[in-house]
Design a protein around this nucleic acid. Sequence first.
DNA 1: CATGAAAGATGAGCAAA
DNA 2: TTTGCTCATCTTTCATG
Lengths: 146, 146
Amino acid sequence: MDPLDSEILGVLREDARISYRDLGVRVGLSANAAADRVRKMVRDGVIRGFTTLIDPTADSRAGLLVFIDITLRPDTTNEEFERVALRLPGITEVVHVTGAHDYLVRARAADPTALNALLGTLKREAGVAQSHTRIALRAAIDGPTR
Amino acid sequence: MDPLDSEILGVLREDARISYRDLGVRVGLSANAAADRVRKMVRDGVIRGFTTLIDPTADSRAGLLVFIDITLRPDTTNEEFERVALRLPGITEVVHVTGAHDYLVRARAADPTALNALLGTLKREAGVAQSHTRIALRAAIDGPTR
DNA sequence: CATGAAAGATGAGCAAA
DNA sequence: TTTGCTCATCTTTCATG
């Protein structure tokens, strides 16, 4: 990847609401040039979106945060599982990891009922053999960026 | 929390770069009223920041993504651990979870050496008794929001 | 890079709690 | 009286060619 684009991504990850003008200053570009690069990365899917990090203790609507260890059935491929999992509501991360299980899935659910539904769907439609769910009691940091 | 603020957070989580005018339209406020509420939430720490979701396969600089299961030493409090862990470089999430371990920590490291250093620091300075690290082989989704 | 259009910030006035 | 909203205005930033 272009090192300038990479630099732009770094700035945008720190502050997604920065103006194109300031972004340009940070990376040594004109506002327009910076804006063009950002727009291009959005078009190309490199930038998936701009989001807001919210203090988990302040957001009452947050619901449950869970981490699910997943073991796939032998007849299920990683691609199949990922394709289905990506479309399920509340799933925020799907990572193929080393260790005893195949995947670690991070998800949010409004309440235990919704969580139960999510787990059921994973088993029925995503080729999941076993799942171990860990529920977040408290999130000191809650977010991907830093 | 104010239901309007909560609604604003919902919109901002979907698109952190939305204009205050459009944000106002979405929640039934004027641009200024919406902007004031956002600024207030930033001041109060409810909004921790605005960030950008990047396609993990496109970001070459990403390095290693790891999930670390942590068991604390009996003489370490959650507060102590969190206080130290929050300041370590690369740690993107610190969550107190149910199950056999105390915490699940999500982190990025530039390379195995940096990962090793991070684990060493956790043991030495954060009161960690045991850690089990799972390394991401592939991240289908990489990000917290949806 | 210039230009019209959009968005952001600021202050005055007003209404409701 | 305090808080929160709107409106008007001025400045900055954005998008297009």
